[in-house]
Design a protein around this nucleic acid. Structure first.
Lengths: 341, 341
DNA sequence: TTTTTATACTAAAACGTTTTAGTAAGTTTG
DNA sequence: CAAACTTACTAAAACGTTTTAGTATAAAAA
């Protein structure tokens, strides 16, 4: 059993020509560099014969491009993010990029640690779901001309490409839908509203409530309390203190999850009696009893847009076109849980 | 705004010493190579000052190690795999490895395409959930001394490290539990049983049924029918043709999902009246009504074992110790759906 | 004194590519 | 028939590391 020196050098020496020629041919620069048809064919055939694959690492070192993208989300095990990852994966591979996924836990230190781990040069670009305090870090990346596209949320005064949804509108529509179905006391469960997406969701809710002359009931659970698993207790208290509630609107999928858990523990009937809407769809929602109405994000569209914004960044030299901020529409998947009881 | 030549060469020229010395110091070989304390400190301090980070690509080219692992699963958006990925991610990063996740859709061509894409040399190792016909490809990898650990399933006559669960036992226990709860006609919904994990699950079920003198009711849905979204129709027919069924055992999480969907569509009451168990837990199961009993895989243990098997493979030269095949225990999470009605 | 050994450091090759700046012919052009 | 192009190819540098095989001096051993 021999070693496998399937390198350009090997091809060159085997065919008694120079490394340069082989490289030119393999990179499709044959005619541009005036390599004869015959020699070109010879090289191509031999390369195929020995099943030559360029060493990406050497290519990267020389060209400075790794063909690697980082896809940094809050938590890859969260179904919203993993569904997104699955779709983005295909799109990226199609364009010749491999993807490293990682989870920042919505934590600034973790985010920074990961970003520096990838070391500016060793990956070609970043898709980032930024944690709350990541603005300066992102700004620096952008300044250093590192391709970055933000996802799910962005920073108001930061010039950086981003793909988000119209959270305010989505939230408004969902709330209005509940109101249209005769719910009058709609509880809104959310967390840290200093992040753009959560801010939007809250204001959409408040807006709808106000427009309809109703009274808002908002529960805001600090993010680190959720991390510590104390989210359920907050929801529990909220329900106890607001017996007048006839509907619940959960601002994220994990809040919906713990919310439903509390409802079930408290009283199985609650889930059927209350109007319920969750932000972000979940495969299980449609087979729940009652099926849970949700605000679904356009996962495919999001992924496509991400790549659409990323590609020009990967290509460009130093140019500084204006960063694009894309805002997509959501879809309200109306199911049993939000219909008038 | 200047360029950033933060390379070893830069440090060397700045301190008027050789590149070699800097490299030795930075690699912790200072005393071994007799570099004086003072110089060592000087280098370390300066490296810290300019925030030097080695160029991993150059390191990889020289050492042949990329510090990249591939984690190839059936579908990263499947919650079982994404949860696993989330845990494995942390373990790998701790050991200095980055992880590229990818989905092979349980498809042989896709698997092979991905494996060759990663190009044998450019990643250090593979964690693979192998598609049915991947045996020869894996065998070749192993022969070529590429570190591979199989996950979730393995091939009978192939010498390759693997981490799986005791599917037969898990399935037996779950079935027995249903029987203990007075269910007599237990339907078993599964798919392609030519894969080790599915084979185990089927035999565990059959074994328990036989041991208790009952009659088996098995529905095996071809995998590509599921892909095409026709799984539900199969379940539907199965239920129609077997009105005697008083319990259902779904062999994977996606089968459980479509199964529950069918039950809900057919008759909401069915879900409450039938005994139900699903293989693989899902966050939503405990908040379902009734809460769904499931067979939970030990995700953390699996991830730890994966890395435990992978590390020695990454270290070793040519040595061929006997590959380890780890089999882990599952846990039956008993919830409402499987209790005697 | 000469030889060995330890200490402190370095030159240069190597990893596998890409690319710049060539050379050496043959062919046109003025 | 010399100058200018075109064609067909190549030598060598470069990317940023690691590592082998040194050198030069000082200290210890023979």
């Amino acid at each position: 059993m021999k070693k496998k020196p399937v390198s350009i050098k090997h091809i060159a020496s085997e065919l008694n020509i120079s490394v340069t020629t082989v490289s030119f041919v393999l990179n499709g620069k044959a005619k541009e560099k005036h390599i004869s048809k015959e020699l070109t064919k010879k090289v191509l055939d031999y390369a195929k014969l020995i099943n030559y694959r360029p060493n990406q690492i050497a290519q990267s070192l020389r060209t400075g491009k790794s063909k690697l993208l980082v896809f940094m989300v809050e938590d890859i095990s969260n179904s919203f993010f993993s569904k997104l990852a699955r779709i983005f994966e295909d799109i990226a591979y199609e364009k010749g990029y491999k993807v490293i996924f990682c989870s920042n836990e919505n934590n600034d230190e973790k985010s920074i640690e990961l970003i520096t781990l990838f070391n500016f040069r060793q990956v070609d670009g970043f898709i980032i779901v930024p944690s709350p305090g990541l603005k300066d870090t992102i700004e620096e990346l952008v300044k250093d001309n590192v391709p970055v596209v933000l996802l799910d949320r962005f920073f108001e005064e930061l010039d950086c490409c981003s793909v988000v949804i119209d959270n305010a509108q989505a939230s408004f529509d969902a709330t209005q839908h509940l109101i249209d179905n005769k719910f009058k006391n709609i509880g809104f469960v959310t967390t840290a509203t200093n992040q753009s997406q959560m801010g939007g969701r809250l204001s959409g809710y408040e807006n709808a409530i106000k427009t309809n002359g109703l009274k808002p009931h908002t529960l805001q659970i600090p993010f680190n309390e959720i991390i510590k698993g104390r989210g359920k207790a907050y929801v529990h208290n909220f329900l106890n203190n607001h017996p007048e509630l006839d509907a619940m609107f959960f601002a994220t999928n994990y809040l919906a999850q713990s919310g439903l858990e509390v409802l079930k523990e408290k009283n199985q009937k609650l889930i059927k009696d209350l109007g319920i809407i969750a932000f972000d769809d979940n495969d299980m929602f449609k087979i729940y009893d009652p099926a849970i109405t949700s605000v679904a994000q356009p996962l495919v569209e999001i992924s496509i847009k991400l790549m659409e914004l990323m590609l020009p960044l990967l290509k460009k030299k130093e140019g500084s076109e204006i960063p694009q901020k894309v805002v997509l529409k959501t879809e309200l998947l109306i199911r049993e849980s939000s219909l008038a009881k």
